[in-house]
Design a protein around this nucleic acid. Structure first.
Length: 504
RNA sequence: GGUCCUGUGACCGAGUGGCUAGGUAGAGCUCUGCAAAAGCUUCCACAGCGGUUCGAAUCCGCUCGGGACCUCCA
């Protein structure tokens, strides 16, 4: 068994082989910290968190680089070439770096809520201006870029002509042919600096009012968007690395341009495997600023948005995303999120109950084994890796988990005896559920803080209720249960007369 | 206009030739003082029309619908 991933470059699933045995270099396009992250942004970071975790499970030492874009995006290229970040800063009356800091912090907070593991390196664009300038100089020197009025543009046509011979034509990732594009590129104003419409900026001259600016051989300005990723990925991962990830919408032009820049500088395809996650949609349309349909993560967690019937917790969102294959679109909806919330709760409660079971004293013997059930469970468990190896099919793994949940609950409720399974099978369930639910899927309990005092108080109430029940004083017992429910604590009368509780 | 993807039951979604996906909701039953939870059962879908095949949600064609990219975008 070995991991297979879908490579956008070849349009097929390929066996994953790292360049250096045992080591993986992975670069994922990070956030632009000029605003708050929304639900759509959560998808790539959760998706590649799974990739990161699974690769590590497979035994790889992974260097995971995810950048912070804190400069360089153009709001409207060609118009005034305004840096997106400085534009917003003026609006909010903040220093640009203050704004950048604010949204970087918010992003990190959200990533922590989602229980994603921090990348190995999180470089910022502004921290790598020098590297970007060096790269641009090299591209100019080789004749694939030209300066015009303090800005520098990449000569796409010349690149395509020369590098097609080397098997690296422009458009190879997104599957487009350069000639087709000449007519289809939209008209933008003030494009006269460019020799061709499809040329893209490596460096932009900063207008006088522009606050974010750096000295360069071409005057004061700021870097183009695409060059930052090329500069940072090659700096930390080398001329060619294993995985480049990001959202599908970055395929063109962003990743295409990265490929071209890196090809000129390093004479190589920057990355071997290009992995792209699909979009999150809302009412069938991509969630995005330009569609005016975004739900910010803070809104999602608080429920404070007209489209939301309630708040949804970070783990619910994480689970929601994992229930779908990463290359399919995922449609947002209250009903769908609520279904995810309930499903997650059932899975998590079974998982917790399972981990608490201690069967050391239990008698297992051959005669009592339900061979059919035992074999079924073993198959379900063994498929966990099989499904993950098949292009990270988290949806199928979850489906299998949900087939195991009734078995766990039945053992817990004593509908079936633990000895219906072999001891080794039971141990496997505990082991693999923990491994996949927690370590690979990164799900966790959302209870925070120290609950020992609260638990003590609950025990007192539970004792009182037990007493009331034994006296058939159902008014008291129902009152306790009802009022706790209103506080979000559900009491359950177990078969054996015990009372358990859970936080809803 | 160009390139590409897609249409699965009430909702979200796996699934690329034959075998129950799964979750949620609904219905029934068991358990139970009641409830909740849990378990069992049920709901047996693949846009439409043709074609290929012993057999198609899955392959091919057409029709209709939805979407992405071509501009910043996760």
């Amino acid at each position: 068994m070995s991991l297979k991933v879908y490579n956008t470059l070849t349009r097929q699933k390929e066996e994953f082989k790292s360049i250096t045995p045992g080591l993986v270099g992975m670069y994922v396009c990070g956030p632009t910290v000029s605003g708050e992250s929304h639900l759509g942004h959560a998808r790539p970071y959760i998706t590649f968190d799974i990739v990161y975790r699974y690769l590590q499970y497979l035994g790889y030492k992974v260097r995971y680089v995810r950048n912070i874009t804190d400069a360089g995006h153009f709001e409207e290229e060609g118009r005034e070439a305004e840096d997106k970040i400085s534009k917003k800063a003026v609006l909010e009356k903040l220093e640009p770096m203050e704004l950048v800091q604010k949204y970087t912090n918010l992003f990190h907070w959200a990533m922590k809520q989602f229980n994603t593991i921090e990348p190995s390196i999180e470089p910022t664009a502004t921290g790598h201006i020098v590297e970007q300038i060096v790269m641009i100089e090299k591209i100019i020197k080789d004749g694939y870029a030209y300066e015009a009025n303090g800005s520098v543009y990449f000569n796409v046509e010349k690149y395509n002509t020369d590098f097609s011979k080397k098997g690296l034509p422009y458009g190879m990732l997104s599957g487009r042919v350069l000639d087709d594009q000449l007519d289809t590129t939209r008209d933008l104003d003030n494009q006269e600096e460019k020799r061709n419409k499809q040329d893209f900026a490596l460096w932009k001259k900063a207008p006088p009012e522009h606050i974010m600016r750096w000295a360069s051989p071409w005057g004061e300005g700021f870097p183009g968007w695409h060059i930052e990723c090329s500069a940072m990925s090659s700096k930390y991962l080398g001329d060619q690395f294993d995985i480049h990830g990001g959202g599908m919408d970055l395929q063109f032009p962003h990743h295409e341009c990265e490929i071209a820049q890196s090809a000129v500088c390093n004479d190589k395809m920057a990355a071997r495997y290009w992995i792209h996650n699909n979009m999150i949609t809302i009412n069938g349309k991509k969630m995005g600023k330009s569609y005016n349909n975004v739900i910010k993560l803070t809104e999602l967690f608080s429920g404070n948005h007209p489209a939301l019937e309630q708040a949804y917790s970070p783990m619910t969102v994480r689970f929601f995303i994992l229930q779908t294959h990463y290359r399919s679109t995922l449609d947002f909806g209250n009903e769908a999120l609520q279904a995810a919330e309930k499903g997650l709760r059932r899975l998590w409660e079974a998982h917790e109950a399972l981990q608490k079971m201690n069967l050391a004293e239990c008698q297992f013997d051959k005669e009592s084994t339900d061979k059919e059930l035992d074999a079924k469970v073993l198959t379900l468990l063994s498929q966990f890796e099989e499904f993950m190896d098949d292009d990270l099919n988290t949806a199928k793994v979850l489906a299998n988990m949900f087939e195991i949940v009734p078995v766990i609950n039945s053992i817990k409720d004593k509908h079936i005896l633990p000895s219906a399974l072999q001891r080794e099978t039971f141990n496997q369930i505990q082991l693999k559920m923990k491994l996949f639910v927690e370590d690979i899927f990164g799900l966790k309990s959302e209870l925070q803080g120290d609950y020992t005092k609260l638990e003590g108080v609950l025990q007192v109430l539970i004792e009182l209720r037990k007493q009331a029940k034994s006296k058939k004083d159902y008014v008291t017992s129902d009152t306790i249960r009802k009022q706790l429910m209103e506080l979000g604590i559900a009491l359950k009368d177990e078969k054996d007369g015990n009372i358990s509780y859970s936080f809803v």
